[in-house]
Design a protein around this nucleic acid. Structure first.
Lengths: 306, 306
DNA sequence: ACAGTTTACGCATTTCGTAAAAATC
DNA sequence: GATTTTTACGAAATGCGTAAACTGT
């Protein structure tokens, strides 16, 4: 799957016609045809429905086009930032986020950090728990949040908080019986996230129940889990705070035996332990996470619009 | 700039050594060497410093690696979602967001939407104002937010709100004189966002002052603007609500002649005017945006953690 | 019959690998 | 002098274009 294939995919989707798209891309129809064909083969599905009047996106193609555009956009940004970097520059402390910024209180962290250390500044960067170690080692981030334990010799860590997780069941999937056993729940379709250590916790608390859940769909990230749960596609494990609004709107129920707890940790390179920016950031984050968030406080307060 | 080059870039950065990286990638050292060289030439900067012990990321390389990893991650997600789509599926209404979800009240929108229409669900997708039209036309999004006016025959729109914008000046760049004229401000370095129509508004309100600001840096998106402003790299135009916490933390001041207002619009394909999911979503969004957000309400209420 | 996509096949470009040269500690 | 990157060049692979075949309206 190469960049030029995605660009072709996008262009064909726009033009809805191979001939015109080929003209736009300044290549021949036949070359474009094989590009699309190879891309479809690689992805293992049909992106377009071929009609006598042109190429029409399939539903699958429609959904993947959005993702393809994400890739192209990210690549654009890379190119543009390269242009920018050919001149200006910026130095700062960089913090990796393994989940949504609001939950991690980035706004409060930034505010306090820059109050205490006016000259430097914080850059937040999204990255999955699983990548944190790697990104720390190569200096892309100075500190990083991640779930679970991650004992590696060159990385130090501190537990920031315990995150409560729960099993959410879309109302569509509920049986009449209000009480469900693990065997009943595990038989339902599950929505799975690769590389997210939430399930290990559930397994612990369930103890004996060794049955593995029935993985119906493997999702890509937490956001997609939310989409799929809302669509009633399956049961999933979510953070409690994320599940709450879904419960309140009546779309899901929480399975009362499915509660778990997982540590939210903050890690940094042992070598950088004494670096001022790291020490400072660590102190700030510990301070911000000492107290639970509440209305008049932290991330909520400075999101207020009035 | 192709996918395999970025993968090579990442691997070399990880291994800090061409020879090892080549082994990981199952290609020869020489091939890898030329790949990196070509990538550097294309980007117009040096990604690595060559030492006798291997390849070390430059500061520019470090920053670009983060972006490259974003691209690779997006590509991974595309591949994974393709795998998912080879089986399951989901149907829903999709809404494009041109700026941060919290500001656009996605949580409140989702909550009300799913209360009223339990069977469908909302999928939010980030996309720049400039892309909204295109994404609407090709069905990637059913409705989309964008800034400013965008009169096109096949797209209908409604003004959702007026967004107040202001000119923020990092304290580092302030002169002693508390009152600054446009010629003084425009002479400062500016941080620019391609494709964001904030400046047109400023130009209107300033009227006579035709001097163009001194564009020091062209940033890639709003998040980077924020980073660069915090780093004191230049003056920028931001949404008022985004600027407020920066002002409160004393990092920037607002230039009092720089206030502007720009419409936040919601658009949809004229052809889809009667589609139930579009009508329903439109109604919900209008309702949510009728009243200003406040503490007990909407996006803040359901982010509460206690 | 027409507008469009797919397939076949030779050609051109790109990329790769081997091996030698250059650079740095 | 050991380790590592760069350069040179022939070989392999990949993508491209022309032209013919195919498909549905």
């Amino acid at each position: 799957m190469e960049h030029y294939q995605l660009k072709s995919f996008l262009t064909v989707a726009c033009e809805q016609n191979l001939t015109r798209a080929a003209a736009v891309l300044h290549i021949s129809q036949s070359a474009l045809s094989t590009q699309i064909k190879l891309l479809e083969e690689e992805l293992g599905l049909r992106l377009f429905k071929r009609t006598s009047r042109g190429m029409l996106l399939t539903e699958q193609g429609r959904q993947l086009l959005a993702r393809a555009q994400d890739v192209l956009e990210a690549a654009d940004k890379l190119q543009q930032q390269a242009n920018v970097l050919a001149r200006g520059n910026t130095v700062s402390v960089t913090i990796g986020l393994n989940t949504d910024p609001n939950f991690l209180r980035v706004s409060a962290i930034n505010q306090r950090y820059s109050q205490l250390h006016g000259n430097t500044n914080v850059i937040f960067h999204l990255c999955q728990s699983i990548d944190t170690t790697q990104r720390l080692r190569h200096g892309q981030i100075d500190l990083g949040f991640f779930y679970g334990d991650n004992r590696e010799p060159d990385i130090e860590q501190t537990v920031i908080s315990q995150v409560r997780t729960c099993v959410v069941i879309p109302t569509q999937l509920l049986s009449d019986d209000p009480i469900m056993s693990w065997s009943e729940v595990s038989a339902l379709p599950w929505i799975w996230v690769e590389n997210l250590p939430f399930f290990a916790v559930l397994q612990q608390s369930l103890g004996d129940y060794r049955t593995l859940p029935n993985k119906a769909v493997t999702a890509i990230d937490e956001q997609i889990v939310r989409e799929l749960v809302l669509a009633g596609q399956g049961v999933a494990i979510m953070r409690e705070d994320e599940a709450r609004p879904l419960v309140e709107s009546g779309q899901v129920k929480i399975w009362n035996k499915g509660w778990g707890e997982i540590p939210l940790c903050l890690g940094w390179l042992a070598n950088n332990r004494e670096a001022p920016r790291v020490k400072a950031a660590l102190e700030v984050i510990r301070y911000i996470w000492r107290k639970p968030p509440s209305m008049g406080d932290g991330e909520l307060a400075d999101k207020c619009w009035i």
